[in-house]
Design a protein around this nucleic acid. Structure first.
Lengths: 244, 244
DNA sequence: TGTGCGATTTGATCCGGATCAAAGTCCCAA
DNA sequence: TTGGGACTTTGATCCGGATCAAATCGCACA
């Protein structure tokens, strides 16, 4: 959205700018235009369940959705956090592999699968853009694996807050050292993200509050008085994550 | 390798068949041929370190290598297991993001980056193939996240053994219910894969041995007397993993 | 045939996060 | 304005896996 605003183009649908057409070439956009439609989901609503037929691919226009995997006995792990401009679905796959759930109101820009795939064949740079995005997602997944496998509960929470900070707004400059925002996830969804229980998430949020790393207004609004201080808690190399 | 043998083509270099050229079209292969070269690494040898300049992309011809991430204090997490036909490197990235290490003798089929990227522009189906492979890797990463976040130590070990079983040989048919193989990883590398300590890996291997789920010949050779029994231990839906 | 060293196993103990339980808070609807 | 329900916090206790420590195995090499 921020980028769209900067270029003055494609204000209503990020996929034009970021997901498919990095140059906004007119001809290809006309094709995409013809097969796109919008859908809105309310907070808590399921977009699709794993195993369901999925006749579309989509780009998140606004709001937050999650990708989760569930084991037979109910253990759950989030495997994707979908923020505006993120892509949902995969060409060539007709059944959803994961549960997709809106955690806030979400607007999706959908493309029917078949025409989208046909368009990809004719338009190499849609495929190129999708490759770039998928490689970025793979990097995200690998950072996430380090978090799940090796970080402590406290580091996990700090890292998640840093991720919201990074993805929610611009990159903080030297003059901007504090930030505040609303958490788009419940404590339970945070626990699904981090591989913890919701009680541990709550306890560690309290611990970070008591340590002065964060301030809480209600349970969902967070203020970070000192971003550098938060980054120290993540276990990551100093501001490595913020520089990418 | 198995597939290459089946088609009777591309016996020496899997990238021809699986990584880049799913059809083995002659013209494109000639181009690839011109920029490819082989490198061999011994067990334990580093292929490249995170942050190093990386002038090539490559396909694993034989052997096993790993992708690992390390935190400042030494905590380590494996984020990729590279088996024959897997691809290393990413177009457009000049510095390695992860440590790559050979865990057995490894032969790589390398392509110098620049010519490879140039070739990708002219040859859409190389890009398409790479997109498919990257999407598959993303699915692997997401399964791995579920393992790291939610599985018990015993389930983790059983899952890893099942992964070796699946990727090491063909898909077991109804008549083939047992299998044996050499572990390509040390206990320590297994612990880096699973987000455990090496002591826990060793203990759980012993536990599975005592329970009759596996048999050990020395510490590295494993026999699985009953694959279905092993699958029960993984925590996954019954044989879901074997059917893909 | 030792000898030394890395890899592995096993034992004892500790601790971080899970589990079980009970309040507390907030918000919406009647 | 109050009652109910979802979400969150906090407390008490437990337990799986980490940590610290010490054998044991296996093998290349003198």
């Amino acid at each position: 959205m921020a980028q769209a605003a900067q270029t003055g183009q494609c204000a209503d649908c990020p996929i034009r700018h970021r997901a498919v057409c990095s140059k906004c070439d007119a001809d290809e956009l006309r094709e995409l235009e013809a097969i796109k439609y919008y859908r809105t989901f309310e907070a808590g609503q399921a977009v699709i369940w794993a195993g369901d037929d999925m006749g579309f691919v989509a780009s998140v226009v606004s709001g937050v959705a999650t990708l989760t995997q569930t084991m037979e006995d109910g253990r759950r792990q989030m495997v994707g956090l979908l923020l505006p401009s993120d892509f949902i679905g995969r060409p060539g796959r007709t059944r959803a592999a994961y549960d997709v759930t809106a955690t806030t109101q979400v607007i999706l820009c959908c493309f029917r699968r078949k025409p989208f795939e046909a368009l990809m064949v004719d338009t190499p740079h849609i495929g190129q853009r999708l490759l770039e995005m998928t490689l970025d997602e793979l990097d995200v997944a690998r950072e996430w694996m380090l978090l799940l496998g090796r970080k402590t509960a406290r580091e996990k929470i700090a890292t998640l807050l840093a991720i919201f900070l990074r993805r929610g707004g611009g990159i903080p400059g030297p003059s901007l050292t504090s930030r505040e925002f609303d958490l788009p996830l419940t404590r339970e969804a945070m626990s699904d993200y981090l591989g913890l229980t919701l009680e541990t998430v709550s306890r560690q949020m309290s611990a970070l509050r008591k340590a002065g790393v964060i301030e809480l207004v209600g349970s969902r609004h967070v203020r970070i008085p000192d971003i550098a201080r938060l980054m120290e808690e993540t276990g990551d190399d100093s501001d490595g994550g913020m520089l990418v």
